[in-house]
Amino acid sequence: MSQFSDPDATGPMAQGVAIFGEFVENAQGVTATVAVIGKKNEPLYLRLFDEYQTKELYFQSLVFVSLDVIDECVERKAMQQDMYLGFLCPIDEYQIYGYMTNSMIKFVVVLADVHRLQDFELRDFFQKVHAAYVEYLLNPFAPLDGDKIKSARFDAAIERHVATILERPPPAPGPGAKA
């Protein structure tokens, strides 16, 4: 399951728990995580928004946990047309929200409790991320077979949209990153 982690890691859960201990002190450290999950539940994209990107495994496990909830959600909401799944579950001091397209691509956002966002803000955010993903797929060079998303433009779009919901200035664009 943990395709993000390197094979030498001792296992995502073990690390996740270990990280958890120190994590409580740094509750402000990571404020948001955006993940894109493919059709077969393969991770396509995981992006942490924090000062130091050390908690990747922990957030990865949060995202994977949420996939089960998404499955349940989908069964429950099978009759509905809405792609926005809404609030999925709380884990520790985070809240997880989900969105699934009709082509079974899932977008998952993990937000720290301190950000009390309205439903419509998240709905709007997910729609923007979806649009960015569509634009990424329209690039003829983008791989179709479930490869990781590697695109400066997609990165920049995610940064921009996350910055709007978190209401803080986007980080300085790296080399090659263009709006």
Partner: peptide, 8 residues
């Protein structure tokens, strides 16, 4: 070139 992003 709309949408296009060249591989590096």
């Amino acid at each position: 070139t709309d949408f296009v992003e060249l591989p590096p």
